[in-house]
Design a protein around this nucleic acid. Structure first.
Lengths: 145, 145
DNA sequence: ATTTTCGCTTGCATTTTGCAAGTAACATTG
DNA sequence: CAATGTTACTTGCAAAATGCAAGCGAAAAT
């Protein structure tokens, strides 16, 4: 399968612009944060997350993230109501972006979650490896239920 | 002076959320890119940038970036019409964020500007240092006109 | 003196977002 | 097995953000 899709009518071919068009809104990266750092995988978990996304916006963002190949879905075989969302390789590759955004805000804004911030500051590589390993492990568990 | 401002009514205290609230739209990071990588400093330059921002949106984003302490303005003494925008230290500190967003899109989307991308891939630190040095030099020139 | 340039503002249509109230499919409970 | 609860959504509508075109005042160029 092809690794990169031809981009449908972008404003420009600048890679930063591509990122901004895909991720530049007030919710997408928070959903990805919840999946990557908090292990959230269901609609209800995202909906109940602290920032309070509206249900129609959540449905829309999940649809777009799927369309962009950042997340995928599968049904939970033991509970037919539940849909399990998970990050694709393209999705977990956003870890460095999230990491730098956390560091920037922690350095220049009044924010919380200092435990996470210090962990990243102390050893960024270790933090990124850990995130990747959690992702790999969760995927393994999903394939062998 | 205080390094961090108390944040007015954020959705949450998560540092990623702070970044998203400040930068999470379709234009802010492109303006910062134009300043950081292309050396743009005037309203007209931003307006004429390839993606085609609308003039009212540009004025609004510049106002917000100033309010967040990411850019500052000064009048051009040799041409009283021109306003010179430049990145603050908080603004140039966004370089790692932009860098990772460029790398992610270059890896997973069909994008251009491969010269820039390869430069970053080959030596990220060197690229970041160069960006910082260009910024320091431009600031020096501005103070001694 | 007139025209052009620059950095905006204003008005208005379109799009996106947010809120509240459904709903269909499945699972649990009595 | 019927009633109730859960889950993942959709729908309708108001409010806010965005985009487009036109205009405008101050300064500079001609």
């Amino acid at each position: 399968m092809p690794r990169k899709k031809a981009s449908p009518k972008r404003r420009s071919r600048c890679p930063l612009n591509a990122s901004v068009e895909i991720l530049g809104d007030r919710w997408s990266l928070l959903i990805i944060r919840d999946m990557m750092l908090r292990g959230f995988r269901t609609y209800k978990e995202f909906l109940d997350s602290y920032e309070g996304i509206a249900t129609n916006i959540l449905a829309d963002r999940l649809r777009k993230l799927i369309a962009h190949g950042i997340i995928t879905t599968q049904r939970n075989p033991s509970d037919g109501r539940k849909v399990i969302y998970s990050l694709t390789p393209k999705g977990i590759d956003l870890a460095p972006v999230l990491t730098e955004m956390v560091l920037w805000a922690a350095a220049h804004e009044d924010t919380g979650n200092q435990a996470l911030v210090r962990q990243i500051q102390q050893d960024k590589e270790k933090f990124l490896n850990a995130a990747w390993q959690r992702w790999a492990e969760a995927n393994r568990a999903l394939r062998q239920p």
